[in-house]
Design a protein around this nucleic acid. Structure first.
Lengths: 114, 114
DNA sequence: CTGCCTTTTCTACAATGTAGAACGATGAAG
DNA sequence: CTTCATCGTTCTACATTGTAGAAAAGGCAG
């Protein structure tokens, strides 16, 4: 019987990066990832933050990378994509959040001040 | 003119804890929070993890706490609740995730193996 | 060659995540 | 009254993630 591989989760920034990879697909290389995140979330992100996160995700086998020579005259890019393991971790993380949010009145604003 | 308070975000576990507080409301004290999280997410959580997180959230004014003498014969509990600031941070974090997920085919399973 | 982009790598430190033992209160059992 | 079993909280310590920015390295224009 297989050892029921205990569930793995991702940190919040890791999740954002993962999602960016999914959106960008074949264009998912560092600088572009950063651009996608800042554009969509308004959150300022240093380029170093993106790369270290990608490196670490790769070290954990959550993403894989390939360097691609860009025939179009620009320099080669290192493209990242989620592995199935990374995909599972992303799903698990999202599910955890979802199950905790379930039934809660979250989007609304009314909130007792403190 | 007010200084447009730069957006603050929460880590993933912080979000889970925050959500637990919202669900538990007046019963949101350490042990119960832990219980709620493990029950809902299947994620194993050490009690120390919950308390340190709560402490830190309080230090950042994301939650406030009050110790309540429980007339019903059980011992006093320290109850936590999100401040409006914490509430904003939670919303901001969720929105960031949501905007990155938008339009993506996420729940489904089909995924190229790697 | 020099300067100027673009993309990546390195180095460092701060914040968050995680565990588990220690400690204190309270009721049950004997 | 002791002792034990909980429950609930505090402490201590270390691991993993988050975040920044400067330093390479590749390629093009002039």
């Amino acid at each position: 019987m297989k050892a029921a591989a205990k569930r793995e989760f991702l940190g919040d920034f890791e999740q954002l990066v993962m999602l960016a990879l999914l959106r960008l697909d074949a264009n998912a290389y560092g600088m572009r990832v950063r651009q996608e995140i800042t554009a969509r979330t308004k959150r300022e992100v240093a380029i170093g933050a993106v790369y270290t996160t990608l490196e670490r995700l790769e070290a954990k086998s959550m993403v894989s990378s390939t360097t691609i020579e860009a025939g179009d005259g620009t320099r080669a890019k290192r493209v990242f994509r989620p592995t199935s393991r990374g995909r599972r971790a992303l799903d698990a993380s999202r599910e955890a959040l979802a199950s905790m949010s379930d039934g809660l009145n979250l989007t609304g604003a009314a909130w007792k001040t403190n």
